[in-house]
């Protein structure tokens, strides 16, 4: 990977970290309501995979921990923050919230809150791609705990049966809400679970963005080349609780220390410093620049945007194009 690319990814990952931390503060300030699932610790997963894919061209779908996936596909961080603030300028016009970000223009096909719900949706998008004959692929990011839903098995079976161009990325952060994986799941290595469907699978270090990008490149090549579905497991860790309502009391401090010693941002930063491509001062300056951007542009935009009009409460329930009115006669 070129130094310039590494620097760009470092910035993107640091931006992701600071964006999420600012969400935390906004939640405490009650600017953000509802449920809020944050991404710190897992940044190398989406950034590494999307480095190998084509953001804005490939169709991406995920669960409720979706802010950074949306932004990495091309969603404007201002519109993402505005969505969290419940504003009309939000990516989903304030109707979705944190768990339901959508940016269809950039082919970010949504965050969904039923664990495992996106598995078949991704396979369906892949079916559509197959019918249209394009070179896009569908990419589904979900956590390890989603693999205990029936949709995991049902969807993998159909994806393999019909050789659908879909990449399933499992961000294995070791916890399903508050239950550690070995207490909920008989086979802890998630990539081993797909062998029953004849789908190629791999496991990679989800804290090392370069390792993720390498593993993802092989996965994406396989899927885009017509080889059918692929399953990529990334070993990672979330620093915060499952959501803001999670006290995070179930994890050993020693385990948390071990993972924070393998922080994806610090790993990449130190590599750049070792290579002489960056100094600690450069990194600090970058951090300051990002914090300012978040405060002055992103938060300011979200704060000053108008809420949705109450008169529009019932919009978007039914089609507004008349396709269902006339009897559909074309």
């Amino acid at each position: 990977m070129e130094i310039a690319d590494k620097k760009r990814i470092l910035r993107d990952m640091l931006f992701s970290r600071r964006f999420e931390e600012r969400c935390y503060e906004a939640y405490v300030e009650r600017k953000i309501g509802g449920f809020l699932h944050l991404y710190p610790g897992q940044e190398a997963c989406v950034h590494g995979v999307m480095e190998a894919a084509r953001p804005g061209h490939d169709y991406v779908i995920t669960g409720y921990r979706d802010h950074i996936h949306a932004i990495r596909c091309g969603a404007d961080p201002k519109a993402v923050m505005a969505e969290l603030f419940g504003k009309e300028t939000g990516v989903s016009r304030g109707r979705g919230g944190s768990m339901h970000l959508f940016d269809v223009k950039h082919r970010f096909m949504g965050g969904y809150a039923l664990v495992g719900g996106p598995f078949p949706l991704a396979a369906g998008m892949a079916k559509a791609i197959q019918m249209r004959g394009g070179d896009e692929i569908a990419i589904c990011f979900l956590g390890d705990a989603a693999n205990n839903q029936g949709t995991f098995h049902e969807s993998l079976n159909m994806a393999a049966l019909w050789k659908l161009p879909v990449l399933y990325v499992c961000e294995n952060n070791l916890y399903g809400i508050g239950t550690r994986i070995d207490r909920s799941t008989a086979v802890v290595d998630q990539y081993k679970r797909v062998c029953g469907y004849g789908i190629p699978a791999a496991q990679a270090d989800g804290q090392d963005v370069e390792a993720v990008a390498r593993a993802a490149a092989a996965a994406v090549d396989h899927v885009r080349g017509g080889g059918g579905p692929y399953f990529l497991e990334l070993l990672t860790y979330r620093y915060r609780g499952h959501s803001m309502s999670d006290s995070n009391a179930y994890r050993a401090k020693e385990e948390e220390r071990m993972w924070s010693g393998r922080d994806p941002i610090i790993l990449l930063r130190d590599r750049l410093i070792e290579a002489g491509a960056m100094t600690k001062e450069d990194y600090k300056a970058l951090d300051t620049e990002i914090l300012e951007e978040i405060e002055e542009e992103i938060i300011a935009f979200a704060e000053s945007s108008p809420p949705p009009a109450v008169e529009d409460l019932e919009r978007y329930v039914w089609a507004e194009d008349g396709s269902c009115r006339s009897g559909g006669a074309g």
């Binding site: 096909m109 078949p120 949706l121 991704a122 369906g124 998008m125 249209r132 569908a138 969807s155």
Partner: peptide, 11 residues
């Protein structure tokens, strides 16, 4: 769900 996902893209 697969049918619904396909319908997102025009099927």
């Amino acid at each position: 769900g697969l049918g619904i996902g396909a319908s997102f893209l025009g099927v």
